[in-house]
Amino acid sequence: MRITFSNARLWRYVMASVGKFIDTGYILINENGLTFKAMDPSKTALIIFEIPKEGFMEFDVEGEHKLPLSIEDTAKILRTAEKDDVLSIEWSSESITFVFERRGVPRSFTIPLYAESAIEEIPELELEIPNKYVIYAAGLYDAINSLEDVSEVLAVSGDEQKLVLTAEGDIATAEITLDTERGGLEEAQVENPGFRALYSMEYFSYLKSPMKMADRSILEVDEGLPCRLTLEYSVGARIVYYVAPRVEE
């Protein structure tokens, strides 16, 4: 069985980002497509990377397959992915092979898979989050890039017109407002205006590269709830990323 994806670089950035704070995860492949799931050991963040069957150039899959792997090793291999590389994935019950191909020259890397029992099952997370913001392409990336050095905490607040991202540090306070009027926000659906949610900044810093590559970002937040960040890419691929709230006042 083999699947082929046109943009190897997207895989490279996703795995490099996840590898910064999670060491193991698993890929689920079935007739509908591929899902990669990983949760950081402190259970603060959960990442799901999905590509529907239609997003692949080639999708030769029968049944369901769970491939538990080392993210560090996978990231190391994917680091060699270049622009224009096409990525194919083949697997057995013991190993997974990544094949990069450019100008007709395939480069193949195989790593062993973990035993299924060695990796904890990641439970489902179903949440109704009342406030939803759709942000233009790299808007979230730019905001995090500016705020990350100011504070270890990211405060998110907003109403129907705007989304305010704040970092309050010991020596400075930084604030970035994205609004619908000036075009920073594409859309806002807010049921609980005036909310203020707190998250650890580092979990947003980890995902900067995939944020930068996204076509658009959807941030769902509310006070005391995990946030759900959805990053959408061409060919239907997307990242769904949950970050637990901080509970300080």
């Binding site: 949760m39 259970k43 603060t44 963040a45 959960l46 489902e124 997370l125 949440l127 995990p226 637990a244």
Partner: peptide, 14 residues
């Protein structure tokens, strides 16, 4: 802070 932080309390069957 009884219950602790993280996503644990939002996950089903954890």
């Amino acid at each position: 802070r009884a219950g602790g932080g993280g996503l644990a309390r939002f996950l089903s069957g954890a």
